[in-house]
Design a protein around this nucleic acid. Sequence first.
DNA 1: ACTATGAGGATTTTT
DNA 2: TCCTCATAGT
Length: 742
Amino acid sequence: MNIEKELNNEQYLAVTSNAKHLRIIAGAGTGKTRTLTYRIAYLLSQGIPYNKIVAITFTNKVAKEMNERVAALIKDENINGLPFIATFHKFCLYFLHKEIRSPFTLNFGIADEDYQNDAFKTVFDLLGLNIDKNEKAQIKNIILSLKCKGIFYDEVIETDIPEFTFSYDLIVKVYSSYQKYLAEQNYLDFDDILMYTYKIMRDNLDIREKWQKRFSHYLVDEFQDTNDVQYSLLKLFVGNNNNLTVVGDPDQTIYTWRGANSDLIQTTLEKDYQDLTTIILNNNYRSTQSILDCSNLLINNNQNRIKKRLIAANNVVGNPVSYNTYQDENNEAYYVSQKIMDLIKQGAEYKDIAILYRKNMQSRAIENKLLSYSIPYVIYGGISFYKRAEIKDGLAYLRLVINSDEMSFFRVINAPKIGIGEVTLNSARELCQKYSTTIFDVFKNHRDELKLNKSTNYFLNRFFTAFDNFANEYKSSSDISETIENYFKDSGFIEYVRNIDKQEQSKNYFETIASSRIDNVYELIKSVKDFLNNPYFDEQGVEKLPTLEDFLNEISLQTSQDEINDENHVTLMTGHIAKGLEFPYVFIIGANQGNFPTFQAINSFDFSLMEEERRLFYVCMTRAKKELYISSHFGRTRNDSYFTPSRFIKEAGLQKTTKKITEPKTYLSTMGDKRRKIVNNNISHMNIKKKVSYNIGDKVSHIVFGSGIIEQINKDKLTIRFDKTGQVKTITSSFSGLSKVD
DNA sequence: ACTATGAGGATTTTT
DNA sequence: TCCTCATAGT
């Protein structure tokens, strides 16, 4: 490791600073994460024990990368371990698995967004409140924002509740019922993971003192998106004696809706740590000056900010930022795909290209076009593997043996549906009270009191038999995938998923995608097996095998960025997910009033919403290294009016093109349906595909699964083994996302 | 009386 | 995809 050579002057100062409390303000592309990584390696080389250092990152993916980079930097030194590098949530989970207390038990589950919604729904039902959907959503949001601030339901005061919204009593009633419901189910939601860590540290002096001695150096990345609870708990861990380094850029605060508070990095920190040292990194190593000029111009429109200006370290001016307008979303998508094909011809690779947008829904039009031009792409953040219905169902089946909570049980008895609805459920809830037990136990042991019909009873028996077998076997199973498969088969789950596949296959055009639900379930089984057979070292250096519980915890903290792989494809994602990433070529699509900025920000009296939209646009722009293409369109809005270009276009000093560009008529629209369907007539991509003849042993490339080899052919069905995962899938030869590799 | 199912409408961003 | 509503099915 030659720090002096590999870093610029400011970075070097930041890395080697011996300040106890250090703040690094680092603009986009100035090497934030790099600096932090080097600082960790530097601390290690200075003799700080690896098990005394904690580094907090924004995603698990960055944590993993940082781990690898630190390991590479210190490989020549005599250090036999790596620091604790993880997200806030992972760090807190580590703490909670040692310190969790009543009303929770050690095998608590993690409630993701869906679980959270289900829980709120149940709570509203149980309270029997007569309020409409919108109001429920508002109440939920108020409660979530209280949680982001670290305010527990028994600590809420009148002034915590936004004016002109709901009564104090109502909010507290829903809030406390929600927390009590989750506690009964032994579940923590994402905010609880932070809140209970904070609470336990705050309220127990002995625990606080113990943990303040546990680690001595804390380093936090992306500090501008830290929220109040995270900061409060961090302060408790740092205490009076430990060291703290934070890195961040206030201009990239894009999570205030989730409680992120950029005052923390700008003002609070220096008040709380009087000896705070600040280092500013200004040299941008990522983008051309043209891209930075537009970005600087745009972000200058924010009033509430400390002025700073990014300068390209390499002095490259580059091509001007391109801005175009199109007739509608489809035209825009068409031109983006044309431009991508141009870039590829000029030698760019698919993985060099990213398409960014404000909201997930905007990916639709562009996806259709990429598909029809056989441009490989992957969408991040839409529906991730672990959010698919069949996977969540499978996970619920598994979770039931760890924690027989209501929500998992509901999922299970609805996959397949076995004739249990709202009314039965409510009477089962009454029996829960009567016997003071769980819903699971009521259906298992007091079912006779529920007056279920014959088939329902049959299905329940089938499920509980399979469940009991699994519960008895899974811990000592020599082949966990077989044990799970038996459980899924005997309970009727596999058959249920296969039936869905069949139904969808008969309807769906892209049958290979639709037919993959059962594949997904088997993929899940395989990933459990892989995870459980992959040993890790605990703190004492003892080799251990993860448990099924570890697996369930792990995946509930999976994030969209964690799924990013290095295969060669165009990347589609929202600005939020793109944070911290960079690409040579970036497209920002749908730069329209109402999209980006959103209608909510435009219509709000709260100007800070608009400033956040602007920061997000700034984040999108500064992802680009070489070239940046921004576009807007004049398509229809939800309210049947027409979109206009985003105000950010002017603010970034971009010129509107004078002529409207429209796509040549290469496709026809039909009005057969109320919703218009695009019929691909002239390109007739599908027909061309059908003529490709495949042979056993041919190398092929699949848009989703990557490269593979054909093992079997049955008429138009190809059985392909994919290299990366080693899994075998059956794909129809005419599928447009499949191509032959020469 | 209850549950399942299909159609239609709506959708900010996510650890 | 997810929710709601109307209707069909048991």
